[in-house]
Every structure is written in C-alpha cells, then in structure tokens.
Nucleic acid binder design. Structure first.
Lengths: 201, 201
DNA sequence: CATTCTGTAGACCAGTCGGTCTAGCTACGC
DNA sequence: GCGTAGCTAGACCGACTGGTCTACAGAATG
C-alpha cells in the first residue's frame, strides 16, 4: 500500500500506518480526551512515535492545522455512520448510530465523548478551527435534515428537528463524560429517535 | 462595605469589589470564552488588575482552585435563576430561564455560551475539577426533577426529563457558540419546555 | 553515480506556563 | 507605640509551549 501517490512505503518505519496517519490518530485521541489546549505537540508526538520534523512536514500549519484535520475527521466519521446505516426510518437510523456512539463512549471509559466540545473555545483565538467546527455541525444537521425530508417531513420542521437531534447528541455526550456514565446519552438518543418518529406532524 | 469579616475595605485599591471577587469574575469570563486550558494565570491577573501574590493568597490551590470556584459559581447562578423564577409551571420556568440564558449569550457575542464545556476535559488531569462539574450537573438535574415532581410527574419520569432538559441546554449552548447564533439555543429551549409540559404522561 | 524529492530525526529557540518567594503596606489588638 | 494578621506587589523560577532549523536517510529519476 503506497503511502502517497507514486511513493512506495518506507519499509523501515512504516510498519502499520504512515506517520501522518499515526499523528492524526494520536491527536484525535488526545484532543477528545484533554481538549485542544490541554494537549501539547510533544504529547501527540510521543503517542504517535514521531519526531517533530515529521509533524511539521505533514502539517506545515502546526497545531492548528492538526486541529482542523481532527475536526474534519470526526465529522467524516459520524457522517459515515449515518450513510452506512441501512435503517429504514430516520428514527431507526438515529437509534442505531446513537447506540454505536454510546458503545464508543463506553469502550473509551467515558473519556472521549463530546464531539466538538474540545475545540469550541477556539473561535476567538483561531478562526480556522472555529469555522471547521461550525462546518462540521452544519454538515451533520444538513445530512439529518435531508433524511427527514426524504421521510416526508416538511423542510422547515425537518431543519429544526435535525438541529435538535444534533444538540441532543452533543449535550448528551458532554454530560455522559461529566457523569462518567453513558446512561444520559442513551436516554438522549432514545428521545431523539422518538421525536423524529412520532413527530412527523 | 467590608471586604471580609472585620476587615475594613482598603481605601486605596478596593474601589468597587474586593480582589478575590475581581479575580473570580475575570476567571469566569475568560474560562467560558477560551476554556480552562486556554487561559493563563497572567490573563486572569491582567483582567482582574491584581498581582500574583493576591491570587495565591485568595486561592492557595492555584489555577485548579479557581476553576472549581468558577464552576461552583456558574452552577449557583443557574440554580439561582431557577429559584428566582415565579413561573407557575416547570415548562414556563424553563422557557423563562432559557430566555434569560439566550439573552446572556447574545449579550456576550456568543462567546461564553457553553456551561461546563470549558471544564470538561479536565477529569483526567484534575479530579477536583471533574467532580465539581459532575456535581454541578447533578444539582441542576436534581433541582429540575424536584420541580417536575412537585408538578405531579412520577419520580422516574421526572428524573429522565430533567436530565434531558439539562442535556438540551448544554448542547444548545455549545452549538449556539459554534454557529455564532442563538437560534438553535432558543429552539432547544422551546422544545424542552414543551416536553415538560405536554408530556406529563 | 549524482541529483532531487520525500520524509525522518531531534537539537534548539524565544516565549509563556503555573507556581514560589520575599518585601512591604495597612488596619487592628494590645 | 509595637506586633501581628490580611493582603498587595511583583521579581523570579524551572518546566514546558509551539515553532524553526539543520542534518540526513532512502527511494526515484536522469
């Protein structure tokens, strides 16, 4: 598997994943656990087993560029879950994806729950990061809205409901982390699904 | 107005508020804007117009103690809003308090929205802060549940609904900050109130 | 072989971090 | 007056921050 384009993988160091991927994975894990400002580049580097030179080679924009990449990746992941769901109704899809998220929360000992919470405070100090977060939310809401409309819900209502569900997931994840329990999150998911189902009015 | 106990106010510096209060107010503002890790002690000191010695006199525990104090203060504030509300039903109370929060969000240019988001990532590095956040959520949920029970809602359902409302407020505030718009938050509040009202089933 | 390009490796930097320490001021008890 | 406690004031500290820089290893191209 080539690292990039025509460049064959380095047989010495790239055992499993290339350096860029390792750095991104490490950053994802740490940012969601400690928050953007709570993580130092050295933490990322240590976890990724990479030197600083590699980091700035793959991410010339430094920490901020890594942050944006992580936000994008999270968004892509959730959107991917939505897309991959074969559930018949939107309500069923939310229940299914929500359960997948709940299990992730459990698997990580309630450490990496909140979706973008970790990045939220950055708008003032870093417009790029703030925009990335806003875009991620907008995409999730948009995707959900589209599904609801396809179900037959009026556009205006669908938009509100989609926004509502996203809020619920975010808030639920946040509180799950605070309380060290997924129970609130599961409750939120259940209610959100219910709301998309019965409330097609 | 004496600063503390029998100690008369310092005529030179304590014009409006004593130093401890100023430090706390500054920390509150900055933490909610940039997050716990995004704020340095020097930032707080500059905004509060206080020297470092005063900070460590009033908060021997340093930054962490300030963080805990800020979380407590936020919780006290919201609980106070609940208590002060003269609304007849719980639903009306939520609508009223939610509107007050929405106005605060607007007044601060969507900068200090999320309730505890800023502190959430700290559980791993600081148990005290994590516990303070968890306690704050528990208190809010408890207070809301008590109101709902007083309204005649069964205890189990009231607990779920209270938890649900808190999640919604938190998620709504988070997304309001991300999108730089209170509209999602107002929507969340409306839905939350509705849910407490019609769903007494 | 020589050059070049991709990427690794880590020493190094100025600036900032949270935190400590001593000095001094002011108001009160005596 | 004197001593002491409450509090202000800020110099100072080692650790660490994000970021830059040079050196170099290896595969690709000629």
């Amino acid at each position: 598997m080539p690292t990039r384009k025509t460049f064959a993988s380095n047989p010495a160091q790239n055992d499993a994943a290339d350096t860029r991927t390792r750095i991104l994975a490490a950053a994802l894990k740490l940012f969601r656990k400690h928050g953007y400002h709570g993580v130092g580049l050295n933490d990322i580097l240590e976890l990724a087993q990479a030197p600083k030179g590699s980091l700035y080679h793959h991410f010339p924009g430094g920490k901020e560029e890594i942050g944006v990449a992580v936000v994008d990746q999270i968004a892509k992941g959730i959107l991917g879950l939505f897309a991959a769901s074969r559930a018949r109704s939107t309500a069923a899809m939310i229940a299914q994806v929500g359960e997948q998220m709940a299990q992730t929360i459990e698997r990580t000992n309630h450490e990496l729950c909140a979706l973008y919470t970790a990045f939220l405070a950055e708008r003032s100090s870093s417009p790029d990061l703030g925009n990335a977060v806003a875009k991620a939310y907008a995409e999730m809401t948009g995707s959900l809205k589209a599904r609801l409309v396809a179900d037959g819900m009026p556009a205006k209502l669908a938009k509100d409901r989609a926004s509502f569900v996203v809020m619920l997931l975010e808030g639920g994840a946040t509180i799950a982390q605070a309380q060290q329990s997924v129970a609130p999150f599961r409750l939120a998911v259940k209610q959100a699904a219910l709301l998309c189902d019965v409330a097609l009015k």
